[in-house]
Design a protein around this nucleic acid. Sequence first.
DNA 1: GACCCTGTTGACAACGTTGACTCAGCAGAT
DNA 2: ATCTGCTGAGTCAACGTTGTCAACAGGGTC
Lengths: 384, 384
Amino acid sequence: MSARGRCHSAPPRPRTGTTVKASRREAGVRVSVQHSGRGPQAASGEPVRRATMKDVAALSGVSIKTVSRVINGVSTVSDELRDRVTRAIVQLDFQPNLAASSLRRTDGATRQIALLLEDVANPFSATLSRAVENVARDHDSLVFAGSLDEDPQRELELVRAATLHRVDGIVIVPAAPDHGYLHREIRTGTPVVFVDRPPRGLAADAVLATNTEGAREAVLHLADHGHTEIAFLGDTRTISTVGERVAGYRAALAERGLPERPGRVVTDLPDTASAARAVAALLDSDRPPTALFTAQNLVTIGAIQTLQERGLHERVAVVGFDDFPLADLLVPRVTVVAQDVVRIGTLAVRRLFERIAGDDAPPREERVPTTLVVRGSGEIAPPR
Amino acid sequence: MSARGRCHSAPPRPRTGTTVKASRREAGVRVSVQHSGRGPQAASGEPVRRATMKDVAALSGVSIKTVSRVINGVSTVSDELRDRVTRAIVQLDFQPNLAASSLRRTDGATRQIALLLEDVANPFSATLSRAVENVARDHDSLVFAGSLDEDPQRELELVRAATLHRVDGIVIVPAAPDHGYLHREIRTGTPVVFVDRPPRGLAADAVLATNTEGAREAVLHLADHGHTEIAFLGDTRTISTVGERVAGYRAALAERGLPERPGRVVTDLPDTASAARAVAALLDSDRPPTALFTAQNLVTIGAIQTLQERGLHERVAVVGFDDFPLADLLVPRVTVVAQDVVRIGTLAVRRLFERIAGDDAPPREERVPTTLVVRGSGEIAPPR
DNA sequence: GACCCTGTTGACAACGTTGACTCAGCAGAT
DNA sequence: ATCTGCTGAGTCAACGTTGTCAACAGGGTC
């Protein structure tokens, strides 16, 4: 944007309808320039200075401080002045400058929070994101979302960017193996709430799913449908949820007196393709499992791909951890242990806003229960 | 946050491993308080004041202005001073106060852009969001995303919130029927780029899909597989893409000399459920269609639901507009006209950053081509 | 009438940074 | 030796707001 002009003179402004278009093509994208009489966008009607409190004060004949009081809802302003100021604000379309405000204020609030997740484009993150947005709205705060891609380095960068922008707080689905570095941020007044995975090397609030219990329930479900050969397939081992889910798997096997066969716990499957390959390998082994517990979204999908390719989708039982869209349109419909993602997100931001408001109770860990959603794929009986 | 303290004395800090937990239950969520020796989160090690340029200047023995120069990469600083300042910055963990900076700077840049979309939780929006984030990262900018839920009122509110926070620019998938109100924002220096749907009553940049051509291609595809009874099912009529896709549908029918039967164009299906009902109604009509062109994501899914329920999914052909996850795992796999969402998002933000950089060329409309993805559901032949 | 209290308003400085300007020092031209 | 121009550094004010404090009006009390 060029320097702010002072010129307020209105340019000639013909009707909008007269737009003429001319097309050309570049690299598959069709571009058309709009030769409207209104002229270029950025210069449309000369850049205009935004009104400040000073302008409002001048127009309503009061001091700047009184304008500030009206805006902040301070009660010691007479009705008459409040009225005059309010009218001036509307007339000038005044919006206070948040930067100046947060610079001066003692609490330094910016009314922005950061949400750092795995990848805004995956369904878990997207749902979380929406839940967080809804709560943030009630607190007049904006949410900026960042994707970590399970990369610790990226986590550092984004936390850094967040504090650079002086966000009021951070909700994070962490990727880093250690969070000691967050100590400094918390001490300088940026509270952090962990979601889905607990902090390591740091005491902080966390909202998590009951991973172990959920996994246990899933595997018991399979065992109770007659399966004795149940495999575990999961995401990257270093993610804490994976460990918890493995623990649940083992607890269920032990509870039903089933042995854990070697090679039946496969982890470090970060995407659909690797999960698909892992399932293929299992099926090709000497003693193929008759049931699969897929401990994550993408793993479940990869598994189903392989089963479909081999025509085994009506033969091998599958229970997945975490629900996903269209799970109930596949054949067979997919039985899952669903996390209450909206609940998790909501609790996490609420906690964050409590911290922002000054709550300094000891950090808490909240566990949100999962639900077994029976749909078909988990109720397939073992052969013979 | 309580008032900033000055106390820098380090509290006793025992090992982390000694955390003790106590559980209780409230409304299904298990809560455990962490009685770690480190004490409450917010007070952990007393709140600490953030370093300012003044501190850096004092530590390195230069003026504040020189610190500013170093941070902004001004070349007229001797190597020695630059070194001293850099070391002080690291030592104090200094991060410049962006609020103060943008307050003082002539361009007033905040390094934040807003992304307003239908709903961060739907796949189209989520993909767009990720694409925007990636480009924004290159410009050291943060993105905050907001969901409009197709609500014009909400659009006004969120644009308002965005300008209140003085974002450098806005990328928007609009919901409002008229965008004249944006004139003011553009003139005060907040450029706006439209995505998926063009602006109305305003000249502004837009990046759109080739809706008409894509729809035409889909319907020609169905006709060329022998269908003469093809229905159109679409989202809310007021959305411009819907109109364009209807136009493409009609163009294709005309091109193949097929009549448009009454009641075959069904719109205003905002969600899966209503789409499912609409398909049921069509199938129950006197002359049921043998093929469906579903002009939006959720509509496609709703249609498939009904077809599956009736066991017609291998009988009635379907081509959808817009790809969706798992489209290739359904039975039959779903043929779609895919939009290049990543491309659309990328072009849009790039354009936005050009505007932010001061480009004041006339507004442009770019059209990104669609691709027909043949998978099975669109190649089902009509009965007999 | 002097005193105090309360409630409303404004003057002023300060938040942390950067733009405009100044100034000292020095090299090269005169 | 003086002048000019340039380079590197510093001083000061200003961005738009809010916290602190003082001033003032009006009312009630003694």
